[in-house]
Simulated scan of single mutants.
Amino acid sequence: MNPDDPRAQRTRARLREAALTLAADADPGTLGVAAIARTAGVNRATVYAHYRDADELLTDAMEDALSQAARAAAVCPLDAPPDRAPAPIRDLFEHVAANAALYRKMLGPQGSPRFAARMRERMTEELTTRFTRGERPSGPTDTPADLHAAYLAGALTGLIAHWTANTPALPAGRAADTAWRLVVGASTVG
């Protein structure tokens, strides 16, 4: 199947939309291919022609969110004051707040391990690239760039998972500022 074929693109878009619709009302870990196919108006074979399983489909459906998280990690100014999160982190937390129910489900105990892993992986890649270019927060200089990046990406993913799981949660701005203080503080330990 040619992924550039407009029909394949339309089918994938319908599948992603169906998966997100269902994930908003059910635990992602309990979603099956049959339910997604039914909601998208296709047969199960069509789903399997595009994705290995429902979890892979959900992760693909959340790709925009993953990209936003990775971009936020990659473009934060290193000289931002420690008491107020820079705009990319604030934007990320606003996005997560607007989609809190879905993030709570995707990152929760019955959620998508693939999504959580992919989120950490994408942020780690972006941060490693940035750190390797020399754009690295102050802190332990003997820590390899990829290890430092993985630490911060895991911490941010875990913080988002915890924040969305707790209701009532801190407002997005306060959560972003708190996350930033933790990132800045974590970068200076050592």
Rank of each mutant, 00 (worst) to 15 (best):
T132F: 05
H50P: 11
T124K: 12
R114N: 05
A175Y: 08
L102D: 02
T128K: 07
L159K: 10
A98R: 06
T59M: 09
P88D: 00
A13E: 11
G29F: 01
D83N: 12
A149H: 11
R90S: 14
P86N: 07
R130Y: 00
R133S: 14
I89M: 06
A37K: 13
T124I: 12
S112W: 12
V33K: 01
T141M: 14
D55S: 15
T157V: 10
T124F: 08
A117T: 10
A26V: 09
P113Y: 13
T188C: 09
A45N: 03
G190P: 11
P3H: 07
T11M: 07
P3N: 07
G41M: 10
A26N: 14
A172D: 08
A24I: 02
A35E: 09
L182P: 06
A72I: 01
A165D: 08
I160E: 09
D83W: 13
D55W: 06
R90N: 02
P6L: 09
L107A: 02
W180F: 07
L20H: 04
R38D: 10
E125N: 04
S67H: 09
A150K: 15
E126P: 13
G190N: 07
A74Y: 02
A24W: 07
L31C: 11
A37V: 09
M1P: 08
E135M: 05
R7Y: 10
P88T: 00
V42M: 05
L92R: 05
D177M: 11
P113S: 15
